[in-house]
């Protein structure tokens, strides 16, 4: 069991995601993207950062991004403060 890839199951309120998109999006999209913070990168990308309640919410968010035709570059779950994902 030890080496099998495991889905992280952190407590819902601790999960935060970073989603990088091609192009610079206006700040007003924050509300549209479920209250995510938008920050512009120097490389012409935009990073959305914010909490995600569960996987369904994450997929809903990704669909909204897809509906806009924005190019998705990367997506990362950011570790909660204690750094432990499995407990």
């Amino acid at each position: 069991m030890s080496d099998a890839p495991r889905m992280p199951h952190p407590p819902a309120d601790l999960v935060s995601y970073e989603i990088r998109l091609q192009g610079r999006l206006d700040d007003r999209w924050g509300t549209w993207f479920d209250g995510f913070q938008l920050s512009a990168g120097s490389d012409g990308t935009t990073t959305l950062t914010g909490p995600v309640t569960d996987q369904a919410a994450l997929h809903g968010l990704l669909r909204r991004i897809g509906d806009l035709g924005v190019t998705l570059i990367s997506i990362n779950a950011t570790l909660p403060s204690n750094g432990d994902f499995d407990e």
Binding site: G23, R24, D26, V70
Partner: peptide
């Protein structure tokens, strides 16, 4: 010349 997202720029 802008790197704003295409439709942000254009809809504006």
């Amino acid at each position: 010349g802008s790197n704003r997202f295409v439709i942000d720029y254009l809809v504006e």
